[in-house]
């Protein structure tokens, strides 16, 4: 069985390699279109333009995927066992967290801002923010129980909802869903990205935490 398996996988790899090598050595893909329209996309970084304007619908759904994963994790209930509960952090971790978290938040802010013209953007910034959250959780910090319910949930869905609401608003003015007027595109993308960064960061940290903190409290 093992041998057959290896043979099959090697055959597959060889076939794929052959297929890739048979591709033309030059191909502009869609880069012609992207550069043509970059001026009216609201940003100068082409990747951000694709993510948040040309193919913004993909990004919108993908925020949905992230939220859905969190819903899925929360629906599984608590998995925490005694060994997983972090004991009191050592002094090194504690101090590191105190230093690093502010730096990470600043870095996230920079990444989010820079995304408009150089590599960077909401997901990168969100990931850094998420890392800050993870560090805080490891250091024993827990979210205030008053914020655990609706406020936490609202912050989680904020990116998705604002994305959808902005997209829908322009539907009312004879445009398609997510069709930004060029003159406002830059501002709108910034607004969406900002809130998305926040939601993504919180969602990633929440994913790390596992169960719904509201249920954990009970």
């Amino acid at each position: 069985m093992r041998l057959l398996l290896m043979a099959l996988i090697i055959a597959m790899a060889a076939g794929l390699a052959y297929a890739i090598l048979s591709l033309p050595a030059e191909s502009a893909g869609l880069s012609v279109y992207t550069t043509e329209n970059i001026a009216i996309s609201g940003v100068t970084n082409p990747v951000t333009a694709v993510l948040l304007n040309y193919r913004a619908y993909d990004t919108f759904l993908e925020l949905g995927v992230l939220l859905l994963a969190l819903l899925g994790v929360w629906s599984l209930g608590s998995t925490a066992t005694a060994s997983q509960r972090p004991s009191a952090p050592g002094p090194v971790l504690d101090n590191l967290a105190r230093v690093l978290v502010p730096i990470l938040i600043v870095v996230a802010g920079y990444l989010f801002w820079a995304g408009a013209y150089i590599p960077g953007g909401a997901f990168q910034a969100g990931a850094v923010l998420g890392a800050a959250g993870v560090l805080l959780i490891l250091a024993g910090w827990r979210i205030n129980h008053r914020l655990v319910g609706l406020p936490l949930r609202i912050s989680l869905v904020l990116g998705l909802v604002v994305f959808a609401v902005v997209g829908t608003l322009f539907m009312l003015t004879d445009r398609q869903f997510l069709e930004f007027p060029p003159q406002y595109a830059g501002v709108l993308i910034l607004l969406i990205e900002g809130l998305a960064t926040l939601s993504i960061g919180i969602a990633l940290a929440a994913l790390f935490l596992g169960a719904d903190p509201e249920e954990d409290d009970n």
Binding site: M1, L5, A11, G15
Partner: peptide, 16 residues
């Protein structure tokens, strides 16, 4: 699992 995925790969090979 192993049988199933091997079948899966075989099928991929045959189809291609």
């Amino acid at each position: 699992w192993t049988v199933a995925i091997t079948l899966f790969l075989t099928l991929a090979a045959i189809i291609t």
